[in-house]
Design a protein around this nucleic acid. Structure first.
Lengths: 350, 350
DNA sequence: GGGTGCGATGTGACCGGTCACAATCCTGCC
DNA sequence: GGCAGGATTGTGACCGGTCACATCGCACCC
């Protein structure tokens, strides 16, 4: 234990351990890597010595010599948005528990060349990769990861062609959106409008789920409004929607957008939920404390992150391992309710 | 350029470059490290070859051999809270631009031993350290970093004893709190109550600034309410404050708490800003879109992060370098206003 | 009893950089 | 012309692990 005091003295190496235990450095290497052909008594002796000296394998040396690297790099388009940040937190927790080092690399653009370069850099630092592929940049990154590099993807699309053959963890955005939409219809709304976050392709699962739910109820989906990540873009979309008196229910791609929409409705003088119901996505910590509090779909991104890391480890042993992330839960709060009884009302089904 | 396609062929090393350029590997090493005693013509030849072959130095090898490591590890108690997340983003941006790898290590507890262990691990992965020392865990970490390890601290206390001799970047929380408090007094409030975030010591600068502003106005500061990080704890504090009709102005340790307080006031039937003014801290993206929108102090954490990284680099050249972070800005919005003209009113000064 | 085969261990080279030192070049100057 | 001495360049060893291979011991079997 390099007494976090003030000794930059050389750290203990396997050769030190070997000398202290009276074996060869190779035997020490075998023990710390769990190689089977070491006599039990020897193994215990070595482990005891490792413990006594506080030996810890040097990551750089290991990486250089091509051993198991014990580090993960997270490739993501963003680190501050709720979903990404929470997933990152989950990964970090799990990685730390397993004594893995965690690296971060942000994908600034979704230009194919730049993404490829970013992936290159991430790969060259050794270790495994976890790609958060909720967006175009992340999805591109998947295709740029050379085979042979251990990696796991977090995706919203169950079977992306991009990730083929690669293990992924799936967060069931589609089912979540379907549930939220069905809930609004059940309350008696004639239709549900959608304000979307930026998404990889036309297959954005939140949008797909919303559309499916409408179609299943025999309703032609209205044109979705494309927004960005910032609440301001939700606000703009909300302003547009507020003008249309037929709009009584709005599903938003995430909670930030939903807050923007709420604000717009407020400014436009449309009461929530009496005139308009607003539903978000994610259940950020603030959702519960807005005025009105926000009905939203809780997604356990932190659990998703942990699942990614767990899969990374399982996959090393069993390449057929696959995980679905935790199931989404609809949280009903003040921002949603039946439409104002009157013209726009529709018979509740339940 | 390892054509991100499917060649796990060995990457190019300095010896390859050396061979291609017709010089020794040592010369290549000198060139890429900017060593002065290399003939200009040789340097250019080597650089051209490096470029042509797409050579990039191997981080692991460098770390192992004790060279300059080109990587930073961020030590932080949290990654999702706005301030931390934004600082992390700034660091990552700057680091990426300088072609540094970025690592993360979360300080789970503020137990001295565990913190020391975390620091050890972070140090052993080589490279520099940036410590976000806004809280007890971060502050502890500062003292646990062995000398000789390049590091920079982001602190809210201008001259912490803990960081002595170490470079730090200071975010002027105290001035920000003073400004916000003075603003509320100027609006005519008799006093300002404070709901605090968890903080390292009694010297929490946000609280100090608030107290100073009150004392400067000849007002005895009321007992501050200690809250946590979650909006819910702000909500609880708000419920307490709402009961007291004398409370007309509340300053909150951050925007999340402020939202909790807003919600509590709403539920308690106290109008904001007519009955009570609420001011936050940070200016998170949502502050502008709350109902009412939140008056808050904008702190450029992202800029703080960039400054930390910049200092890390400057410091290597000039160990007397120091930086103050960007100045805070008070953003006036709907959640604050003069007290309801009546009993509690106090003559505005301006 | 001695070869076979496997379990357990040790030896050497290597990963891709850096350091310390030695060797070479060139220039100025006597 | 020869030599001192700085500027340039090259050589060897090393960082701390891993790999491939050689070696050793021993039980097993014919």
């Amino acid at each position: 234990m390099s007494v976090a005091g003030h000794t930059t003295a050389r750290a203990i190496s396997i050769r030190n351990v070997a000398a202290a235990a009276g074996v060869s450095y190779q035997t020490v290497s075998r023990v710390i890597n769990g190689h089977p052909s070491v006599k039990a008594s020897t193994r215990e002796l070595v482990l005891a010595t490792v413990d006594r000296l506080g030996f810890r394998p040097n990551r750089a040396a290991r990486a250089l010599a091509g051993g198991p690297v014990q580090s993960v790099t997270v490739l993501t388009a963003n680190t501050t948005l709720y979903g990404y940040a929470a997933a990152l937190r989950g990964i970090e927790e799990a990685a730390r528990a397993a004594d893995f080092a965690v690296g971060i690399r942000v994908l600034e653009s979704d230009n194919q060349d730049e993404v490829a370069d970013a992936v290159d850099r991430a790969v060259e630092s050794g270790g495994a990769l976890i790609v958060l592929a909720f967006d175009p940049a992340g999805t591109r990154a998947l295709t740029a990861v050379p085979p042979g590099v251990p990696m796991v993807a977090a995706v919203e699309t169950p079977v992306g062609d991009e990730a083929d053959g690669r293990p992924w963890v799936w967060i069931n955005d589609r089912a979540a959106a379907t549930e939220a939409t069905a809930y609004l219809l059940q309350l008696g709304h004639r239709t549900v409008h959608y304000v979307s976050i930026p998404s990889p392709t036309a297959t954005a699962q939140r949008m797909v789920g919303w559309r499916q739910a409408l179609l299943a109820a025999g309703i032609e989906p209205p044109e979705p409004l494309a927004a960005g990540w910032h609440p301001r873009s939700g606000y703009r979309a909300g302003m547009l929607l507020a003008r249309d008196p037929d709009v009584t229910a709005v599903l938003c791609g995430n909670d930030d957008l939903a807050f923007g929409v709420l604000r717009a409705m407020h400014e436009a003088g449309r009461a929530v939920p009496d005139d308009v119901s607003v539903v978000g996505f994610d259940d950020t910590p603030l959702a519960e404390f807005g005025t009105p509090s926000l009905t939203t779909v809780r997604l356990d991104f932190c659990g998703l992150g942990r699942a990614c890391f767990a899969l990374l480890q399982d996959y090393a042993r069993d390449p057929t391992a696959v995980r679905t992330g935790p199931a989404p839960v609809l949280v009903r709060r003040e921002s949603s309710g039946p439409p104002r009884s009157g013209i726009a009302a529709r018979r509740p089904r339940a």
